[in-house]
Simulated scan of single mutants.
Amino acid sequence: MTLLTHSNGPFESATYSSGARSTAGTSAAEAHLTMIKRFCIGALATLAIGGAASAVVALRAALYFSRHHF
């Protein structure tokens, strides 16, 4: 029967009360939001690097074609 009862006294709140659950859920939600933000920043950085590389290639092509009069 000891497994079914709380180890605290009869008038003390349990350690897994709804207040403790909401705090744990908040930290989990914050961690999830941080993970999403980190993913979005990485995706934007990848797109920015790709755009810069494309701009360099386009500039080099424009210089090549302007020198050779195509």
Rank of each mutant, 00 (worst) to 15 (best):
R21L: 13
S54P: 00
A61F: 13
M35A: 12
G42W: 12
E12K: 07
L3D: 06
V56G: 05
E30C: 07
A53M: 09
L59R: 07
A61Y: 11
A53Q: 05
G50Q: 02
K37H: 10
A29T: 10
L33I: 10
A20E: 12
G25H: 11
A24W: 03
M1T: 04
L47N: 02
F65C: 03
E12N: 04
T23W: 02
G9N: 07
A28L: 14
M35K: 13
S27W: 01
R67I: 15
G42P: 01
T34D: 07
S54V: 07
R60S: 14
T23A: 09
S18L: 13
H69M: 05
G51C: 05
T34F: 01
G9L: 14
S18R: 13
S22C: 09
L4P: 01
S54W: 14
H32W: 01
A43N: 03
A20P: 00
L3G: 03
L44P: 00
S13E: 09
S27P: 00
I41Y: 06
M1E: 09
S66P: 00
A20N: 08
E30R: 08
E12S: 10
S7I: 14
G51R: 02
R21P: 00
A52V: 09
A52G: 10
S13W: 00
A53K: 02
